[in-house]
Design a protein around this nucleic acid. Structure first.
Lengths: 222, 222
DNA sequence: CGTTGCGTTGATCTCTATCAAAAAAGGTGG
DNA sequence: CCACCTTTTTTGATAGAGATCAACGCAACG
C-alpha cells in the first residue's frame, strides 16, 4: 500500500503536505491482526493510538459475568483510542478485530509534536471528537430510554441502503456482535427479529435483511 | 464579579494573557437563569456554547413517555454544549438549571477565531473532550452492564468525601435527579437505598448519607 | 463423520417500571 | 407558630421486559 497516499485521504490528515505525511509514516508502525485477535485491553497502558488502514475492529466493555457491550465499530480511516492521546494514558475499552485488520500505530508523543506544528489538524480531531461525543449521547439515550425493539429498528434504519427498489440492511457481523452493539444478548435479538418478521416489517434472507415497511420501522424507532 | 480574573482560573483559558481574556469577555454575554429554568433544548439550533460561572446545570435526554436520563451535571468552570462548537450546530440535549445559575455565553464563531490565534487552548479543549468521552464510556458501561444497586454503589463511592473519621456523601440534588443520573426512577432509587441501609452499608441522615462499610460498597460497585 | 461455534426456541426467573396511595418534607400566608 | 397546600419521597401491589439456563438444529471444517 502507498501509505502517504492513503493517509492523505483520511479526513484528519488531508491538509498535510507530502513531507508531513512522510513524517507520520516514518514515526508510525503497521500492526496486522487476524480476525478475533485482541488489539488492546481495557485499562492497559497506552502510549499510542491507531488508525484503521483496512478491516474493522470493535471497541467494547465486559461485565464481571462476561456480558459484552460494544461501544463502537471502527473501519478504514477511523481513529481508534484517540482518547488516550490527550487524557490519561490508558485504553478506554477492549479492542478486537472483527476481520483481518491492518492498523497504523501512531505514537502519542510523535503525534502531539506533529500537532504543535500543524494546529489545523486539531480542528479535525476536535471535529472527530465531537462526532464521537454525539454518537455516545445517542447510545446512552438508546440504552436508557428505548427498549430493544426500538433500538433494533433504529439500527436497521441507520444501516440500510437502497438496492434497486428495495431497502436492505447487510449486517456485516454475526448476531452475537449485533446483540452486543444493541446492548442485549443473542437470544433476545433473535426473538426481537422474529417480532419484526411476524409484523411483516422486515424479511430475513440468507445474507441480508429486507425492510418491507420503512414507515413502521421509523415509527418504532421514534 | 471580575470576569477576566475568573476566566483565567478556568482550565481552558489559563494560558491566556489578560488582553485575550478581555477579548473573550467583550465578545461574550452573561446569561442568568433561575433554578428550574431551561437553558436550551435538545436539537435546538446552536450558535454558542457556555461556561458555568456559578451554580449548576443538568444535561439530559427525555424519552417519548417523559422519562429522563441525565447525561452529566456541570458546575463552576465547566464547559456546556462544547460539542456544538466543532460538529453540527445543534444542542445535543436539554439543559436545565439545578440552582440559580450564571452562564457565560460564548459565540461559536468568536471562539473559533480565538482558537486560531491561540492553538494551545485547543489542547485544553481536547483534554476536556477526552475526559468527557471517558465519562460517557463509563456511563454506557454502567447502564448496560451493571444493575442499579451497583450503579448506586459506584456513585456513592465516587462522590463521597472524608469528614473527620467518617465517609459521607452529600447528594446536592433531590432524589428525582439522582434517579435520573443513575438511569432509573425515584421509586427504584428509594428501594435500592433501603437495601443498602438494611445491609448496614450506608446510613441516611437529614442532609447526607454516611458510608458505614466502604469495602462492601466497593465490592458492590465492582 | 464427530466436533465446534452460531443461532434459535422454550421455560423460567429476576429485576425494574408502572400505577396508586400514603407519608414526609417544604414552603406560604395569616 | 400554626394550618394549609404543594412537592418530594416512600411504600405496596402488579406487570412486563429482558436475562438466564438448557436443549436442539445446523452449518462449517478438520
Amino acid at each position: 500500500m502507498n501509505i502517504p497516499q492513503f493517509l492523505s485521504n483520511i479526513f484528519v490528515f488531508e491538509s498535510l503536505t507530502s513531507e508531513e505525511l512522510q513524517l507520520i509514516e516514518t514515526s508510525a508502525a503497521i500492526k496486522r491482526v487476524s480476525k478475533g485477535a485482541l488489539v488492546f485491553s481495557d485499562d492497559q497502558a497506552a502510549s499510542a493510538f491507531f488508525i484503521v488502514l483496512s478491516g474493522r475492529v470493535k471497541l467494547y466493555k465486559l461485565s464481571a459475568d462476561g456480558n459484552e457491550q460494544i461501544l463502537h465499530i471502527q473501519g478504514r480511516g477511523d481513529l481508534v483510542a484517540e482518547a488516550a492521546i490527550f487524557d490519561k494514558a490508558t485504553y478506554p475499552a477492549f479492542c478486537e478485530a472483527l476481520e483481518d485488520t491492518e492498523l497504523m500505530r501512531i505514537s502519542r508523543d510523535n503525534f502531539k509534536e506533529l500537532l504543535r506544528h500543524n494546529p489545523e489538524i486539531m480542528f479535525k480531531i476536535l471535529n472527530a471528537y465531537s462526532k464521537r461525543l454525539r454518537y455516545f449521547v445517542d447510545l446512552i439515550e438508546n440504552l436508557s430510554l428505548h427498549d430493544i425493539k426500538s433500538r433494533l429498528a433504529g439500527y436497521l434504519l441507520k444501516h440500510c441502503t437502497e438496492e434497486g427498489s428495495e431497502l436492505v440492511c447487510r449486517l456485516r457481523m454475526n448476531k452475537k456482535n449485533l446483540a452486543a452493539v444493541l446492548g442485549t444478548i443473542p437470544e433476545t435479538l433473535s426473538r426481537t427479529l422474529n417480532l419484526l418478521k411476524r409484523e411483516r416489517v422486515i424479511k430475513e434472507e440468507p445474507d441480508h435483511l429486507t425492510i418491507l415497511n420503512p414507515a413502521k420501522l421509523k415509527q418504532l424507532a421514534e
